[in-house]
């Protein structure tokens, strides 16, 4: 019996890193958008830009996910 520990380990590592990274990014985006209302001027613009950058990264991850399913 051969158990593919390497594959199991990669699944474990990838799931952990990607999940934490995505949820972290998305949370930053959400925080950035809610900050917009309290901050003013330059800070607000920066927060919104940062937020959209975070969301864009998440959207890219979703697109890659769809690519993985379809391919």
């Amino acid at each position: 019996m051969k158990i593919d520990w390497a594959a199991l380990g990669s699944v474990f590592g990838v799931s952990l890193v990607v999940t934490v990274a995505l949820v972290g990014l998305f949370t930053l985006g959400v925080v950035g958008l809610t900050k917009k209302e309290s901050a003013e001027g330059g800070t607000a613009a920066l927060a919104v830009t940062g937020a959209y950058a975070c969301f864009a990264a998440c959207a890219a991850a979703v697109a890659y996910g769809i690519y993985l399913i379809v391919a």
């Binding site: 594959a7 699944v11 990838v14 990607v18 949820v23 998305f26 399913i69």
Partner: peptide
């Protein structure tokens, strides 16, 4: 917030497992 974390982790683990082959 938890629902989002749970669902994202599920989607990631499913895709990672089917892609890596375990």
């Amino acid at each position: 917030q938890q629902g989002f974390a749970a669902q994202t982790s599920a989607a990631t683990a499913i895709l990672a497992s089917s892609h890596i082959g375990f």
